[in-house]
């Protein structure tokens, strides 16, 4: 969190024109291309670690490898959040930009009795990009050895694997029936990931689409 006027920056340079939204410098570019990539780094990302089986895991209701969209009350607003079973005993919760204080508060309260729980804000530690379009799987197949077919990786699936040589969290999150993936990696490699996807998507006419909060 920061004072008003202090601008947060994603590791991915925003495609012009740049505007400030929810305290973040983002791209205002809008694309109608059939395949787009969007920098979603401004989303709040909170990691929670607990025993893989236990009270906390039960309350989070999301098994490893799956994603659940839930509506949580953050502050005084009802917000859409995404709870990702990102590892054994590990979850990643995505919320609207700037929501970490309330997310951390809620997640800490969720901790089961006797469970050692760690809630760590990774909003600034991870880059997050969204790849959307019917060719999204073909583009991603250039970068990862994972089987992206529906039988292995249906809508609502999540996995962590190597993407473009990086350890990355991948979430299949189709939008209105169109293939869409969220790909997250360490912040410092965000630009590299973004550029890799742009390069791999070039043959399909990929374009940059700007971020519109809350965009979860």
């Amino acid at each position: 969190m920061a004072e008003t006027g202090v601008v947060a920056r994603s590791p991915i340079a925003p495609a012009a024109p740049e505007i400030i939204l929810a305290g973040w410098a983002v791209s205002a570019r809008r694309s109608g291309a059939a395949l787009t990539v969007t920098d979603c780094t401004p989303l709040t990302k909170v990691a929670i670690k607990a025993a893989p089986v236990g009270a906390t895991a039960e309350r989070l209701e999301v098994p490893f490898g799956r994603v659940s969209r839930q509506t949580w009350t953050l502050g005084d607003r009802d917000c859409s959040v995404m709870v990702v079973g990102s590892g054994p005993g590990e979850w990643l919760v995505l919320g609207p930009p700037g929501s970490q204080v309330s997310l951390i508060h809620q997640l800490s309260a969720l901790a089961g009795d006797g469970d050692l729980v760690a809630v760590v804000d990774l909003s600034h530690g991870r880059a997050l990009v969204r790849l959307t379009g019917s060719w999204a799987a073909e583009v991603l197949a250039k970068e990862t050895a994972m089987d992206l077919g529906d039988s292995v990786c249906p809508d609502g699936a999540a996995f962590r694997s190597a993407v473009a040589g990086l350890a990355a969290d991948v979430i299949r999150d189709d939008r209105d029936g169109t293939r869409s993936y969220l790909v997250g990696c360490e912040r410092s490699s965000g630009q590299y990931l973004f550029d890799s996807l742009l390069e791999s998507g070039a043959e399909f006419g990929i374009e940059v689409d700007g971020f519109v909060p809350p965009d979860i």
Binding site: F64, G65, A145, S161, A162
Partner: peptide, 17 residues
């Protein structure tokens, strides 16, 4: 590349390990 059966993630390329 051989596959390593991860009890958590399933079979994955050995390069991930």
């Amino acid at each position: 590349m051989i596959l390593i059966p991860c009890p958590w993630c399933g079979s994955r390329d050995a390069g991930e390990f």
